[in-house]
């Protein structure tokens, strides 16, 4: 669906992105992860034909972003970093306007607007002025706007930034719901967001892609698993004993320096820490550390973003 090759964007005195190449398959949800100023927004702006690249090519839904901008624009829904709202318009009115400039045929408009309103949970605020909505609602209007013409591709720039925790959860759930029918690229600088919503992560730092992998390959626990980090003092490898515990699916040794450090994949929502702790004591191991670990994405991220080179 999306193929970029050597995308480079040079602003006066600064290389915003440098030789960015990646591919996104149909139906994938890809998380664009990187610190602020890494080049996430620039890449997205190129993909949405808002800005041309200085060099390199990008094809979206089979069309070149420079040569066939109109065809690309028809195939994407874009939520910029701050939702592009006209604050004096009512929600419904605004969506009506967007449906017109997105080229939704007149006969389809009503249906498309109703659908977006429903999916984004805007039923109660349809007649409110967007300027009077809370940030969370504005973000939802922004999402409704992006999916209005039912584009196969959604490009979402920091969809959860500035929201309170409850709104963040809601927006993430909405994005996951959209995942089935749409190819989605979303950018974020929040790590858990990627593991919670995406299938693949592209880490970008200082304008370069430093890592592009599927979360499965990164041992992300997956939606029904969570991972624990365990460190014990034991005379031999204990991973087999650990796996035999109920609720523990696998135990993997993660330390290379001789310490007995394991990463355990367990059922989500079923805290097995007490069982692991008493088991360790029972076995006569000395328990040094036992804690829940969101994902080892964090480790990787810190490693690639703080080191000069990459590991891609």
């Amino acid at each position: 669906m999306i193929v970029t090759e050597n995308l480079t964007k040079i602003y006066p005195g600064k290389r915003a992105i440098d030789g960015v190449s990646f591919e996104v398959q149909k139906g994938e949800i890809v998380g664009f992860l990187g610190p602020n100023g890494a080049g996430k927004t620039t890449t997205m702006r190129i993909l949405t034909c808002f800005q041309p690249a200085s060099s390199g090519t990008a094809r979206v839904a089979g069309h070149d972003v420079f040569e066939a901008a109109d065809a690309v624009k028809r195939n994407i829904g874009y939520l910029p970093e701050s939702p592009p709202l006209y604050l004096e318009m009512r929600v419904r009115e605004y969506l009506e306007f967007v449906s017109r400039i997105k080229g939704v045929p007149r006969s389809m408009r009503r249906q498309r607007i109703d659908e977006s309103v429903e999916r984004c949970g805007l039923g109660d605020v349809q007649q409110r002025t967007t300027g009077k909505l809370s940030k969370g609602y504005r973000q939802r209007v922004g999402l409704a706007q992006a999916m209005l013409h039912n584009p196969p591709i959604l490009i979402l720039d920091e969809p959860t930034s500035g929201l309170d925790p409850k709104q963040v959860v809601e927006v993430r759930r909405l994005i996951r719901e959209l995942a089935g029918e749409h190819t989605i690229i979303l950018s974020t600088h929040i790590l858990p967001e990627v593991s919670m919503t995406c299938e693949r992560v592209i880490i970008i730092n200082q304008g370069r892609i430093v890592l592009s992998r599927s979360l499965r390959d990164l041992d992300a626990p997956g939606p029904d698993r969570e991972s624990l980090l365990l460190e014990v003092e034991a005379s031999a490898d204990v991973s087999e004993q650990l796996t035999s515990l109920e609720g523990v699916h696998s135990a993997q040794r993660v330390a290379a320096d001789g310490a007995r450090r394991y990463r355990l994949l367990c059922d989500r929502g079923r805290d097995v820490r007490p069982r692991v702790a008493s088991f360790a004591v029972q076995q006569g191991w000395r328990l040094l550390e036992l804690r829940a670990q969101e994902t080892n994405l964090e480790e990787i991220y810190l490693r690639v973003v703080t080191s000069e080179g990459g590991v891609a």
């Binding site: 967007v98 400039i101 080229g103």
Partner: peptide, 13 residues
């Protein structure tokens, strides 16, 4: 200022 230009310029008009 409001960022709506991004909406207009990424729409097929």
């Amino acid at each position: 200022r409001s960022g709506t230009m991004e909406l207009l310029l990424t729409s097929p008009i």
